[in-house]
């Protein structure tokens, strides 16, 4: 930890300050140091999307951003967006449609879905499928996920 860098960021509305090794990525920091295990590690090279979190309003890969880069940033995770109720409609639609099986990709899938809802609230089915292409799901056939998001956007 001799090269650790003091870093201050806001996570789910709470300011935290930690000395962080420069090589530590954001998702490992959130999981291992803050105990926010809802963001998952799937591939560690920015492909599967399971580590998606929101930083200053934009969704990012938690495995491709270093934790020290989040200095001064506002970071939001599945736990925060669940507690604030921001994801409540999407979560209900996912539940009603069984738009998840093992649930490992699900928190990130919800982050991506919320991002679409904010940026393109009238997205078509094709646009939903395209928007989710950075989030792999290996259990469902994606269809229930697309159905659930469609329910929220057009319901």
């Amino acid at each position: 930890m001799e090269h650790a860098v003091e870093t201050t960021l806001t996570v789910n509305g709470i300011e935290v300050t930690r000395r962080i090794e420069p090589r530590r990525n954001l998702v490992d920091f959130l999981r291992e140091e803050l105990g926010l295990t809802g963001s998952h590690v799937g591939c560690e090279h920015g492909v599967c999307g399971a580590c998606t979190v929101r930083v200053d309003g934009e969704i990012v890969r938690g495995c491709l951003m270093l934790a020290v880069q989040a200095n001064g940033c506002k970071v939001e995770t599945i736990e925060g967006l669940s507690d604030s109720g921001e994801l409540a409609r999407l979560q209900k639609a996912f539940h009603d449609r069984n738009a998840l099986q093992c649930g490992f990709c699900t928190p990130a899938m919800l982050m991506a879905a919320r991002d679409l809802q904010l940026k393109n609230p009238k997205a078509s089915r094709e646009e939903i499928r395209t928007h989710l292409s950075g989030n792999y799901c290996r259990c469902t056939g994606y269809q229930a996920i697309v159905d659930a998001i469609e329910d929220v956007l057009h319901g």
């Binding site: 999981r31 291992e32 105990g35 926010l36 295990t37 809802g38 963001s39 998952h40 590690v41 995770t77 599945i78 736990e79 669940s82 979560q91 996912f94 539940h95 009603d96 069984n98 998840l100 093992c102 649930g103 490992f104 699900t106 928190p107 919800l110």
Partner: peptide, 21 residues
């Protein structure tokens, strides 16, 4: 019937093996 155990997974409050410390 929607399955009850989906609720925790939807909030990122599941308990996968790597989550255990």
């Amino acid at each position: 019937v929607p399955r009850a155990n989906a609720q925790r997974l939807l909030q990122g409050r599941g308990s996968f093996t790597d989550d255990l410390i």
